[in-house]
Nucleic acid binder design. Sequence first.
DNA 1: ATGGTAGTAAAACTA
Length: 257
Amino acid sequence: MRLKVATYNVNSIRSRLHIVIPWLEKERPDLLCMQETKVSDDKFPKDKFEEIGYKVVFRGFGRYNGVAIASKEELEDVSFGLFGRDEDRLIRGVYKGVKVINTYVPQGYKIDDPKYQYKLKWLEDLRRLFDREYSPDDLILWCGDMNVAPEEIDVHSPKKLKNHVCFHIKAREQFKKVMEWGFVDVFRKHHPGEPKQYTFYDYRVPKAVERGLGWRVDHILATKPLAEKSVNSYIDLKPRLAEKPSDHTILVAEFEI
DNA sequence: ATGGTAGTAAAACTA
């Protein structure tokens, strides 16, 4: 059975429907993990997904954060949050026996800000969640906007960005500790050593895509038994190049399970 | 060293 999975930081689902809905209709993935939906549950545009034959589960409180998973078949055992908090940053469930965790990891603001300490702690707690509730022998997908570019190859200017919260060494180390629990970077598996493979380009940087000024901060990670079954992974740049673009691209991975 | 844009929501905050 083919399993096609995608992750997309939508930066407001309501202002990104013109991208999300046609993309789903064309690509028909089994799962689309979304972050930064920026909408409270009562205003989530559920109907737009159902009209095209998708189920969708979501959690958001309004202006910030918000996560959702659209799926072809119903997601089972859906739950939210990390040890009782941040329900709008972590949503998980089970799809055809595959456990799925979709996260919007805190960005951290600045490395000398308490928000950055919170980001590091968040990743520490996430590792604890995997330790306690999952096994690396299972088929598990961890998808989302991790707000971490893991290696030098994953940012446009490693030296210049060394003190940025998404590339700072402590964030990368903490991310690595979660990875070491038992995840494989599925995109990197299919593109080893390939530079300039970015999933995010800041709106504020003029001609960012043309100039290659991006970051690889969105990821699809799989446990080894699942990663062994991956057949490809790619970054779909179209959302970043649309007439009304988004800052993030869509990351896709396919598995034969 | 700063500011650049986009989103929510109605001024400031987040990314």
